[in-house]
Amino acid sequence: MTTALFYLFSIFLLGSALFVVLNRHPVYSVVMLVFSFANLAGIYFLLEAYFIGILQVLVYAGAIMVLFLFVVMLLNVSPERPRARWVPLDRWWFGAVALVFVISLGALLVRGVGQLPSARSEVPDGFGGITQIAEALFSRYLLPFETAALLLTVALVGTVFLAKRKI
């Protein structure tokens, strides 16, 4: 039952992500992105990463996407029209690079991850719960945690500065 659910979520995830990329209208894209992130959160729950799943809903599907939506509305972006003129060779160049990338990524998956033995089926109680993450975060990862706080502060200041009317 959960396995079936995983594949369902995966299909929704990939489908909506593809929609985000292919759609011409930014507002639809944002909405589909929210949907894809929600599916991702579902996959997180299935993988027993409950805290991360909740964060995914709160931070990504919630905060970040609202920010995107605001900007789209603020700038009143119109739907993207097809390119009037491609820079010569660009289309083929980008396509070739993307293709090579996908192939090499696939090779890595087959050669690397494909060789791994099957997973241990059980994890201890409370795995992925808030207690365990908090323990790791405030002991071994205390310094990176504090640094992250600093990063957020810097980002805050930077954003305020950049968004001012005159720079």
Binding site: A49, V59, Y60, I133, A155, G158
Partner: peptide, 28 residues
Amino acid sequence: RYHGNIDGQVFVFFSMTLAAAEVAVGLA
């Protein structure tokens, strides 16, 4: 999940922090 090791999830936590900061600055 595969390794039964929580460190990966902590990393995701940091990655999300970074994404939040990046989005804020980027959109600005």
